[in-house]
């Protein structure tokens, strides 16, 4: 049998060889000091590899992960119970107020409703006035539009056709001026 190659030695050490091959290897090892040295070396190497220190996570690692996964979520049941709790709280507050104020409560209530009525009336008046202002402004806008239309029809009437070249030429000069003013931005991108 030829001398053993490292792959066979590893397989022999890790019991990965069929039993017949393992017997042959063992027979060769008994007679070959070079292969014995190789085996010894690889065995020591494997032993070191297999006994490499194992890193340990911190003791609270599991809790950290669980805290990330199972974050307290806002479930619907909790929301309903909180809302009910608030309702009960405010109702109790109101009842306490009624009990504490006693006969004055109704008077206070009627005064409050009167104030509410006055306030409502003021609001209504404000809304009416605001409506009137909106109507005035819209009439003004309409007038403005009508005036504009009349001016345009005057300009473009056949009799005053000479106005058009004037407008066109002023547009031309305006665009020339704009090109000159924004030449850097337009052509250099600066």
């Amino acid at each position: 049998m030829k001398c053993l190659d490292p792959e066979t030695i590893y397989l022999f050490l890790e019991e990965g060889l069929p039993s017949s091959d393992a017997k042959d290897v063992q027979a060769h090892l008994d007679t070959c000091p070079r292969c014995q040295l190789l085996l010894e070396d690889r065995a020591h190497f494997l032993e070191a590899i297999k006994s490499l220190p194992r890193w340990q996570p911190p003791p609270d690692f599991t809790d950290q992960v669980l805290a990330k996964i199972f974050r307290p979520r806002l479930d619907s049941q909790r929301v309903i119970f909180s809302a009910l709790g608030l309702l009960v709280f405010f109702s109790l507050c109101f009842l306490t107020l009624v009990v504490l104020t006693g006969p004055y409560f109704l008077r206070t209530l009627s005064s409050f409703s009167h104030q509410l009525f006055v306030g409502g009336e003021a609001c209504l008046l404000f809304l009416v006035k605001a409506g009137k202002v909106i109507i005035i402004f819209s009439k003004l806008g309409l007038n403005f539009l009508q005036q504009g239309r009349e001016i345009l029809s005057l300009l473009f009437s056949w009799e005053r056709l000479g106005v058009i070249p004037m407008i066109l030429s002023s547009f031309f000069w305006l665009s020339i001026f704009a090109l000159w003013a924004f030449r850097r931005k337009l052509f250099l991108g600066a």
């Binding site: 010894e40 690889r42 070191a48 590899i49 490499l52």
Partner: peptide
């Protein structure tokens, strides 16, 4: 990886030294 006259790496170090080197 497979020199004919290979040196014994493992036997040159003690086990704990070898582990450190391997790491």
């Amino acid at each position: 990886v497979l020199p004919l006259q290979e040196k014994s790496v493992a036997r040159k170090y003690e086990l704990h030294q070898l582990r450190k080197k391997i790491e």
